[in-house]
Design a binder for these strands. Structure first.
Length: 504
RNA sequence: GAGAAGCUAGCUCAGUCGGUAGAGCAACUGCCUUUUAAGCAGUGGGUCCCGGGUUCGAUUCCCGGGCUUCUCACCA
């Protein structure tokens, strides 16, 4: 950066030099505050009036208005901002030099009295000004009046690549990631209060199973073997149910080597929970209560504004059968067609008539899935449990007793988006083996995504797993819902981007 | 992986029907000691994403590449 430094940056380095020549350390070792800004506002600035008091606080200069030998500037800390007033009359000679060389983006410590300006703006009259870190890489200049931003940082790429800058200049970014943290915290609290134990299972696995997705491969040098980054924690969590823990959950990252989109990041956060002596209906109830708990906790309401919609999380959420929804939105009774032994060709013909693209579908189930995602999913705005899915797409779920095609599985849908996946867990090891083998057969027939056979998991089931309900929730998507964001990159602090040729 | 759009000053954006570019903010200089998207006057700042082609001349037209965004595909 330095040899290509722009004029702006050169100026900053010159100021740095000037300060050092006057024995001012632009990067002192420490500075301790008596108050953070929010507390100053609370303690010294009642609605009307003022409590005069002495404070010592710090923050980043986010606005800078010199006026003669006086300067009004605003400092921002993690939670709030306050205006500082300083001049040659309030500061000593050395601190005034700091003031004269102050730039947007500098981090400063301030000591002084609280007061209100003529326009009643809460302010601090600085008697001491300490430079704590010089800004050498000028920030985008974003101005703000009554909550409206002017020249807001709108270069999306810049915001993702330089998230630390985005966090400084874009209040919504700060807000959304604080809210994300609160969501995660609320989920943990809810699960713990429900009696679930948080566990950590391997992220590096010998067999990447538990979901149908392409894994990332990594390598262990000492053992000289390839490992997969997990695509799901599912099979390990169920091993713990076998081991005798009755309520477990894990809240952490999964890795899937798939395309990147507004709804997909290669690493994403899931919460998976398993409860022994329970079934998928138990998990529906848990899901509903969890969403309500989190919404109350972080938003204080069960009605969420998302884009054009007001989404009402108030339970109970309706439950609709997968095949009934297909019937409802396509006009075709697939349940009947299945009983009449519908062929793949006939299924594709039906999809053609419905104008649903299906060219890559290799099985009847994949055709149905295409129809579902094109005709049904976008309509599922208010919370709904879609239940009783085709067996062929759900190799880890228990069959509905007496039903040839369907399993006890549901997916909660909100805002046209799948928020999770849950089922009554298959615990019959022989059946599980057959299902894995069926996956292999489907793959040989050309199915795009199938699940890997995990032999040790079969061994675990042979030891005996009680009847169990399991649930997975996509945390990123949940946060998108709660923060009214439409791109997953806006709820991931550092989304994966291709590297860029230096510069910027 | 496919299609569409975008890439011009530190930021937000104009613009050039082909003659090497502008505004606002920011920076710098001067004035201004209760301003707040502060104000007034002046100054400086650009490999117009990269490479090639056409052309007397390309930031502009053509071809190739890069990166991003959006949509679709795969998936959650």
């Amino acid at each position: 950066m330095s040899e290509e430094a722009s004029e702006l940056i050169k100026k900053r380095y010159e100021k740095l030099q000037k300060l050092r020549q006057h024995s001012i350390d632009p990067y002192p070792n420490r500075f301790f505050k008596t108050h953070d800004i929010k507390r100053i506002k609370e303690a010294f600035f009642p609605q009307q009036g003022l409590v005069v008091g002495h404070v010592k606080t710090a923050g980043r200069v986010v606005s800078h208005r010199p006026m003669g030998k006086a300067v009004f500037f605003v400092i921002q800390d993690e939670a709030d901002k306050i205006q500082i007033y300083a001049s040659n009359e309030t500061l000593n000679e050395i601190d005034f030099l700091v003031l004269q060389n102050l730039d947007l983006g500098d981090i400063v410590g301030v000591e002084g009295e609280t007061f209100r300006t003529r326009t009643q703006e809460p302010s601090i009259r600085a008697h001491k000004l300490t430079l704590l870190a010089k800004n050498l890489s000028p920030l985008p200049v974003v101005k703000e009046k009554e909550g409206v931003l002017y020249d807001a940082l709108s270069d999306v790429e810049f915001r993702y690549r330089k998230r630390y800058v985005d966090l400084i200049v874009t209040p919504k970014t700060r807000h959304d990631f604080k809210l994300r943290s609160s969501v995660v915290q609320a989920i943990r609290q809810f699960m713990q209060e429900e009696g679930f134990m948080e566990v950590e299972t391997p992220m590096m696995q010998l067999v990447a199973s538990g979901a149908a997705a392409k894994p990332f491969i990594t390598h262990h040098n000492a053992l000289d073997m390839d490992l997969y980054l997990r695509i799901a924690p599912e099979l390990y969590l169920k091993r713990l149910i076998v081991g005798g823990f009755e309520k477990v959950f894990e809240l952490n990252r999964n890795f899937r080597n798939e395309g990147i989109s507004t709804k997909h990041n290669p690493e994403f956060t899931m919460m998976e929970a398993y409860q022994a002596y329970a079934d998928y209906e138990t998990m529906m109830d848990l899901t509903q209560r969890l969403f309500v708990f989190v919404a109350d906790k972080v938003l204080g309401t069960q009605k969420i504004t998302y884009g054009e919609h007001i989404i009402d999380l108030t339970p109970p959420w309706p439950r609709k059968n997968y095949l009934d929804l297909l019937h409802e939105y396509s006009g075709i009774d697939f349940k009947q067609k299945l009983q009449e032994k519908l062929s793949l060709e006939e299924a594709k013909e039906l999809a053609r008539k419905l104008q649903v693209p299906h060219h890559e579908a290799q099985t009847i189930w994949e055709v149905l899935d295409e129809v579902f995602s094109h005709l049904v999913e976008p309509k599922l705005i208010q919370p709904v449990f879609v239940q009783n899915y085709p067996k062929a797409m759900s190799p880890l779920a228990k069959s509905i007793p007496g039903d040839e095609f369907l399993v006890e599985r549901f997916e909660p849908y909100i805002a046209g988006r799948e928020m999770g996946n849950a089922f009554t867990e298959l615990n019959d090891p022989e059946e599980q083996l057959r299902r894995f083998e069926e996956q292999l057969r489907q793959r040989e027939q050309g199915a795009r995504e199938t699940m890997e056979l995990d032999e040790d998991f079969i061994e675990a089931l042979k030891v005996g797993m009680p009847p169990t309900g399991g649930l997975g929730l996509g945390i990123d998507r949940m946060v998108m819902l709660f923060t009214n964001n439409h791109s997953i990159k806006d709820v991931i602090l550092f989304p994966l981007l291709r590297p860029r040729e230096s510069k910027k």
